[in-house]
Design a protein around this nucleic acid. Structure first.
Lengths: 209, 209
DNA sequence: ACTCAACCGGACCGGGTGGTCAACTTAGGT
DNA sequence: ACCTAAGTTGACCACCCGGTCCGGTTGAGT
């Protein structure tokens, strides 16, 4: 009933050796299954991929949402590290382009991240909310720097960049099986639209944060 | 078993009066339900909205896919008419912009069309495939005209426009409840990227049709 | 070696899906 | 008025899902 020993360990007694092993198998399997089939893959599939029973999943994670959130959390950590590294890069324009490339590439290779980027309900999970906010501030800083360097139009915001990252992917997504690199075409086109030279006034303001 | 009297009528005996009425109620309900909740809304929900039993749905449509296809077919007809009308408009640049606006607006107000545009399986339905191809040629002609008038970069294709139409919507989609007009921002940004003046060479060719 | 709490597994539950069917109702030609 | 084929219905089926639970297993402190 109240066996909520999930999330970060260490708060309670240390896990037994077999439980540590199961947890690792579970996370690894969930990473693979959610990457391939998205967050809608079933708990039973994850359990089977881990070679464990379905009940074991719910021993380690109170709900499927918690399991998904744990995996998404990892992915966001990676992207945050990448993005914060880019904040110290020499070329602000290249840094911005590389952030977009990294974000889209992640979606191409990870269906679960597509779901998150496109607004899956796991976004509302407290663990994930916090990470998204941290990613947002890193991206905001990235755009600030590019704007000050005059390499992007000055009416564009960090949130715009986040949304465009998913939008560019979604643009190419229907053709993904036939043209796995098509997203680079639309990324280039979008980056052209972000140039200061291309700027015509935008009709709708960026939404409140 | 072989009661496939669906699709266009007239090939078989005329429908009985009550069947005509039921079919109309069904189509009308399906239009509303799928528009609001997408193609994943259940057959039972459509039946209830029509005030009919679930069995009646399957008398008129052999499968849920066929029902969805019938509704999507109607939507595509509307968009095709709009697009072909724009082929005779005076301003090729405005025509192109209006096509994008119409396509995105349709997605905003019709969840089922979002699903189709984003690659839902109903795209493979023969009825829908044909209509999409007809829409594609109309859009191709629209882009040709704009390209010849020099108002869009010359490396852009009709398929690009189709994909960008859904991409722009998807870009703004996560913010739709809070900012229902945000898509206009990203449409403007994308149109800026489509200007000949903004053009830098695209890294990936358009996919084979 | 013994013990017991921690752990595991899979049958099971309630709810939802697309699809089927036999019993009932009804339209419409005679 | 009547008869029959067409139409309607909701219970029913098989299958899937997330989540629960209890009986059997096992790790680890003694």
């Amino acid at each position: 009933m109240l066996a909520a020993v999930n999330a970060t360990e260490g708060t309670d007694r240390p896990l037994r050796a077999d439980a540590v092993r199961s947890r690792a198998l579970l996370l690894s399997a969930a990473r693979a299954v959610f990457a391939e089939r998205g967050t809608e893959a079933s708990v039973a599939d994850v359990a089977q991929a881990a070679g464990l029973g379905k009940g074991t999943v719910f021993r380690h994670f109170a709900s499927k949402d918690d399991l998904v959130a744990a995996i998404v959390d990892e992915m966001l950590d990676d992207l945050i590290v990448t993005t914060e590294k880019l904040l110290t890069a020499n070329d602000p324009a290249a840094a911005l382009r590389e952030f977009m490339t990294a974000g889209i590439d992640l979606q191409v290779h990870n269906q679960a991240f597509c779901d998150v980027a496109a607004g899956a309900s796991v976004r509302r999970h407290p663990l994930v909310r916090g990470k998204i906010e941290r990613l947002e501030s890193a991206v905001e800083a990235l755009v600030d720097r590019a704007r000050r360097a005059g390499v992007v139009r000055d009416d564009v915001t960090g949130q715009d960049l986040m949304l465009l990252m998913t939008g560019v992917y979604q643009t190419a997504a229907p053709m993904l099986p036939e043209s796995p690199d098509l997203w680079r075409r639309y990324l280039a086109l979008t980056l052209d639209g972000l140039q200061p030279q291309a700027a015509r006034p935008l009709p709708t303001p960026a939404p409140r944060p």
